[in-house]
Write a protein that binds this DNA or RNA. Structure first.
Lengths: 341, 341
DNA sequence: GTACGGAGGGAGAGCGCTCTCCAATCCCGA
DNA sequence: TCGGGATTGGAGAGCGCTCTCCCTCCGTAC
């Protein structure tokens, strides 16, 4: 009993206990080729009896596979605050592991905020610790995607990369989402609508902004004032101050994400505006901020879980066939109507 | 070049390129024993030339070490909401990886919410994928700590386990923190103080409650009304409704964590109470909720980063010496004074 | 009775690495 | 000049597993 702890049993031990060869035990465990059902049973009992657990290192040494994939969350600056504040990541993890767990594939979460962490992640991936990686990058200039494409296992991206890259990715139709927001504000009767965009070097921000402008133009609104934020609540507050100063009469607002919407909402209220009565606010993402707001935010929601599951599907396909051509899958967002608009 | 991708170079290749033996290359890479500096240089150049990356599987097969440890976040129910909403986990990760990175040890994050996920985590740990684990459990009845102690690699816990267990852990002096809160409320001149506690099957909640009561008793307050919550904002709201109904005149509140404090604060405000003028509120944890509140929360802050670093230190010591006796390290909390009290 | 085929099991060669021996070399003092 | 210790490099045995051969055995057809 005491020795079981120190030296865990090997295939050899199981084989001896079952009175068969190592190869047969291996076959039973991996379910390959025909093995007499009776012997299978004997082996299984022996496995249980000696408390055998396959040694992953030995296995992957010969197979070249590890049976686990990494979820790499990369970004700069306000990184931890982002990951651990934004339930978006929770939905990503949930979607991925929901798809992976039944397949017996392990998910390893890696965080790469600073440059040295990034180097470590690359090391980790190159050393063959995982068979592939799903990369969620929160920053436009993040060099990680490019570095990974160059050397390393198969990678799938969340969201279209800022620079064109030979890499599969999954994204949402941002402009369609923005259009939902625009149509809703118009339907509510808003006349003077403004927008707070995300950083314009991020493709998603750009698409949301241009999609919103386009949809508004279709409704006859040629000019939509906009201020650029950086996806934080604080930047939303500052942007709203600017908007209220420059365009005092606005009665509708579309923010590039919920956090900025929340900031804007707080500022609007501190200026005595009632939401949604005086100002209708629509966010994007359906993050926890949307629910934390008073009133709760009307917002555009991506099917993050579905998107994440699709990412794992794509990644597994790439692992299976390294020469598979890269693809992109785009999902349609929904509008979640709450009280802010 | 093309083949480098498919079959990555091995030690043998480096050895051939450098004109030395495999053993020598290994020695250079691992920095063991004396190797002629000139040869070292030659080997290093060969490594760079062929683009060699050590195969971790092969290495850990022989060494029995993997060079990575797991951070297992376990809990039931509102799990994802917790991890990805509570910046507390961000601070934990930050503290751990800050300590581990310079040592070249990889951190693998694992989430174990449901029972099947838990089984998978145990598998993962037993298969020797990591050398040890740091376990953060958010639930009192979580069976994972006990299961891991029984079979698996060294484990260190965040917070004292609900059931006594032969396992090292790191915790904060909860009662001392509660006392800081009590003293502060008294110093502000509060006369009728109440508290909202966390679930009482969690040791931390219990200690905070009894510590608070004890400190208040020391100030002559024999009776402190309290309502039990479950650490969620919603439970804080419900608890506050109860408190206001049963004890209309309270002017000071200590909540078992910030989320409940936030809920309580919102309810108090909706009842027309001004914070801190009519009601002073003190939270616990210094989570993001503390800052998101209006007014921002005065709260008790643990040195989470230091605690996390200490956990990694303990874990590495246990890995180094499996027979090391278990220890607990208790940290002192601070009071962060903001506007709510 | 012989030939043949398929199913079931074993033997053994590695996967890429570390690490223990052991051999070669060198420097020193006697 | 030679012996002995220190230093440095190489040979080779595994770590635990998978997987390709190959052998045996049995049933079937001729």
């Amino acid at each position: 009993m005491r020795e079981d702890r120190l030296v865990s049993p090997t295939l050899e031990d199981v084989a001896r206990a079952a009175g068969v060869s190592r190869a047969t035990v291996s076959r039973v465990i991996n379910g390959i080729r025909n093995v007499d059902p009776e012997i299978q049973e004997t082996v299984r009992q022996a496995v249980a009896a000696v408390g055998y657990v396959p040694n992953r290192a030995a296995r992957s040494l010969v197979t070249g596979k590890t049976g686990s994939i990494a979820l790499v969350v990369s970004g700069a600056g306000h990184f931890f605050a982002r990951v651990f504040t934004d339930p978006f990541f929770g939905r990503v993890v949930s979607g991925i592991s929901g798809h992976l767990r039944p397949l017996g594939v392990h998910l390893v979460l890696m965080l790469a905020e600073a440059a040295d962490a990034r180097a470590q992640v690359i090391d980790y991936l190159r050393q063959g610790h995982v068979d592939g990686a799903i990369l969620v990058s929160t920053h436009a200039e993040d060099p990680l995607p490019a570095q990974l494409v160059e050397s390393g296992p198969p990678v799938v991206l969340f969201a279209r990369p800022a620079q064109p890259l030979r890499i599969s990715y999954v994204d949402v139709a941002h402009s369609a989402g923005a259009r939902l927001a625009a149509d809703h504000l118009i339907a509510r009767g808003c006349e003077r609508v403004a927008t707070i965009s995300g950083p314009l070097d991020v493709p998603a921000s750009l698409e949301r902004l241009s999609g919103f402008r386009e949809a508004m133009a279709r409704h006859g609104h040629a000019y939509i004032p906009s201020v650029e934020g950086n996806f934080t609540q604080e930047s939303g507050e500052q942007a709203m101050e600017r908007l209220l100063a420059d365009h005092p009469g606005i009665d509708g607002l579309f923010a590039g994400n919920d956090l900025m919407a929340q900031g804007a909402l707080l500022v609007a209220q501190s200026h005595g505006l009632r939401v949604p009565h005086d100002l209708a606010v629509v966010g994007f993402d359906d993050s926890s901020a949307a629910l934390a707001c008073r009133p709760p935010l009307t917002t555009v929601r991506h099917p993050v879980e579905d998107m994440s599951a699709e990412m794992s599907r794509l990644l597994l396909a790439h692992i299976e066939d390294p020469d598979r051509r890269v693809t992109s899958v785009i999902f349609e967002p929904d509008l979640v109507i709450r009280q802010s608009a």
